[in-house]
Amino acid sequence: MSTLTIIYTVLFYVATLVFIGGLAYRIYEYTRTPAPLKIPTTPAPTTSAGVVYRMAREVVFFESLFKSNKWIWVFGWLFHFGLLLVLLRHIRYFQEPVWFWVEFLQPYGKYASFMMVVGLLGLWARRFLVDRVRYISTPSDHLMLALLVGIGVSGMMMTFVAHTDIVALKAFVLGLMFFDWQPLPADPFLLIHLGLVAVLMIVFPVSKLLHAPGIFFSPSRNQVDNPRERRHIAPWAAALEREQA
């Protein structure tokens, strides 16, 4: 087996471990930290079903962002839904045989990469063109966009310009999954693409990408507006109450 294959094999195991372990830890931390007070941004739903619906609107349509700024909404939505289609398309590398709907999505996923990259470039442009956004942008904000654009463009190069050996690639991926390691095609775009993806997975749990799990834990969005009907009290606050009673 080539050195290259060994490096990428190890890299992907590490990246997967960090990604899953780090994210699980973060989610555990969010779960463990109580929200001691009722702080839904009102008007808020008065039932749990209502909260699920509110959250769904946030996650699927970016409702608050839509209210806020149409440019960020357009670019943000293009990027995220482009990315979603692209990711779904990539499922085919992880299974044999491939599910019917994944097959069906292939052409859409292919062109969704344009959505994704256009969205990213739009968001990036705002970091230069809008003085307020320029002021708040840190080097990591730019690097994160560079990383995602890099992943998108290198992937598109393989889809539309210089095809890679996807049969060998799939063998490599399935090999990773079943601990039956296979050689990785030494194709520059593929190596860039996979390398950047691994970096993305590694930084995910220690970066602002935590907005993805974070939204589900945001008390201003996930709480039911029923404080007069239900007594909401955190364990540490209940302890304080017993102490002072």
Partner: peptide, 10 residues
């Protein structure tokens, strides 16, 4: 943790 510096609030 969650802020991505999108600028929507600015």
């Amino acid at each position: 943790d969650a802020c991505v510096h999108c600028g929507a609030c600015t």
